[in-house]
Amino acid sequence: MLKRFLVTFFFTLLILIPIAIAIDIAEKIDNFLEHADLTFYQIVDEYYTNFIIYYANTFMPLALFIAVILFTSKLSNNTEIIAITNAKISFTRFLYPYFVGATIITMLSLLMNHFVVPSSSKIRKKFEQTYIKNRSQQNKLKFVSNFSLQLTDSTYIFIRNFNTTGNNGYDFTSEVYDGLKLKSKLASDYIKYNKKDSTFHLTNWRKRIIYKDRDSIISGNKIDTVFNFTPKDLIYQSALSQEMPSDELVKFIDISKKRGVKNLNAYLVELHKRTSLPIASYILTIIAVALAFRKRRGGTGINLAIGIGMMFIYVFLLKISEVLGAVAGVDSLLYVWIPNFLFGCIAIYLYFNARK
C-alpha cells in the first residue's frame, strides 16, 4: 500500500507541474522574446529549473490530498477495503501506511521549505527582475525613502533617500543617545557604501558633540567611517523573506528586532508557514482517507469533487491567515496555524466517524 500510495503521489505531482509550466510560458513568452541575448539554456537553467523546485514544493499538499483520494477510492471501488475490514483490521491500523507516506513527504517538504526553496527562489527572482519585471516594479526594489533604523541600544540612523543598486543616498543622519539625552549627531548630504572594505563615504558632513556645558561642532568635505549596517538592511519587504534560508531568516528577524524595526510580521508569517504547511500533510491525509474510505454512489468522481472543494477552502483560509498575520500588532504564529487548527478539528471528527 505504501508503494502504491507514493507512486500515485509522484504521478499526481508530475501532472500538476507541466500544467503550471505551460500556463507560465503562455504568460511570459513575450518577455522572453523581448531580450535577444536571452538563450533557451539560460531560461531553462536559471528560471524553469527553480520554477519547478518552487511549484513542486507548493503543490505537495494538493498532490498528496488528491493522491490519497484517488488511491483510497480505487481500493474502495475494488472492494479491497471490505476485505480489510472483514479481516478485523482497524481503521487506525489501516491508516498506518498512509502516515508513513505522509511522514516521508512531510520531511521532504520541511527540508525544501527551510533550505532548498529559499536558495532556489533567489536565483529565480533575480531572473524575473532582470528579464520579466518592468522598470517601475524594479525601481520599487531599488529605492528606499525616509528610512530609520536602530543600530544599537543608543545609536539611530535616518536616511531620506537611498539607492540599493548604486549603494548611495542623500540626507543621512546618525544620532547617539545616553538614555533620552542626545550625546552626538552626525549628518551628511551624501552617503556612499563601499563593498570592498565595508565603509561609508560621507560628503559635506557635520558632527555635533554635546557636553555638559558646551557643544562642539566640526565639519568637513569628505570622510570615511564605519556603521553597523549594510544597504541590504535597509530593504524590508516580505518578498525578500522567501529568498532567505530559515537560519538566515531567524538571524535577520532577531537583528531587526534589536534595531527597532516595528513590523516584522511578514517575515514571521513566512517563517511559520514553512513548518505549518508541511505539517498539514497529516491533517489532509486523515481527511482524504476518511472521505474515500467508504464506497460511494458516483465513485471516485464524487470523492474527488468533495476533496478538491475542501482543498480550495483550505488554501483560501491559508491566504487569508497570511494576510491577517502580516498586520502589525497581531500574533503571526496563531494566524498561520488557524487553518491547521480548523481542519484538524474536521480531521478528528471524520476520523472518529470513520472508525464506527
Rank of each mutant, 00 (worst) to 15 (best):
M1C: 09
R4H: 09
V7P: 00
F9P: 07
F10P: 00
I15C: 15
I15L: 15
I19F: 11
A20C: 10
I23E: 07
I23P: 06
D24S: 08
I25W: 07
E27Y: 10
E27T: 12
K28I: 03
F32A: 08
E34I: 14
L38T: 04
T39C: 00
F40A: 12
Y41M: 13
Y41F: 11
Y41G: 06
N50F: 15
N50Y: 15
F51W: 03
F51Y: 13
I53C: 12
A56V: 09
N57D: 14
N57V: 08
L62D: 05
F65K: 06
A67P: 08
F71D: 07
L75W: 04
S76L: 01
I84W: 00
T85F: 10
K88M: 03
I89A: 09
I89K: 05
S90A: 04
S90C: 05
F94L: 11
L95T: 10
Y96D: 02
P97K: 05
F99M: 15
G101P: 03
I104W: 05
T106C: 15
V116M: 13
Q129D: 10
R135H: 09
Q150D: 07
L151V: 07
S154C: 01
S154E: 10
S154V: 10
Y156E: 09
Y156C: 01
R160W: 02
F162M: 02
N163L: 01
N163A: 01
G166A: 14
N168E: 12
F172I: 07
S174E: 02
E175L: 13
V176M: 05
V176D: 04
G179E: 03
K183E: 05
S184K: 05
K185C: 07
Y190R: 10
N194H: 10
S198G: 04
F200E: 02
R206T: 12
R206S: 14
R206V: 08
I209M: 09
I210Q: 01
D215K: 12
I217K: 09
I218T: 12
N221K: 12
N221W: 00
K222Y: 03
N228R: 12
K232A: 15
D233P: 02
D233V: 04
S238A: 15
S238N: 13
S241N: 02
E243I: 03
E243P: 02
E248W: 08
V250E: 08
D254F: 10
K258C: 11
G260A: 12
G260W: 06
K262N: 10
K262I: 13
K262Q: 11
N263F: 12
N263D: 13
L264I: 13
E270V: 15
K273D: 11
R274E: 05
L277R: 03
L284A: 06
A288V: 08
F293I: 11
F293E: 07
K295F: 06
K295I: 04
G298F: 05
N303P: 07
L304P: 01
A305P: 02
G307F: 02
I308E: 06
F312A: 14
F312C: 10
S321D: 07
E322P: 00
E322W: 03
A328T: 04
L333T: 09
N340E: 06
N340Q: 06
N340F: 03
N340H: 02
C345D: 00
L350S: 13
L350W: 05
R355F: 00
R355N: 09
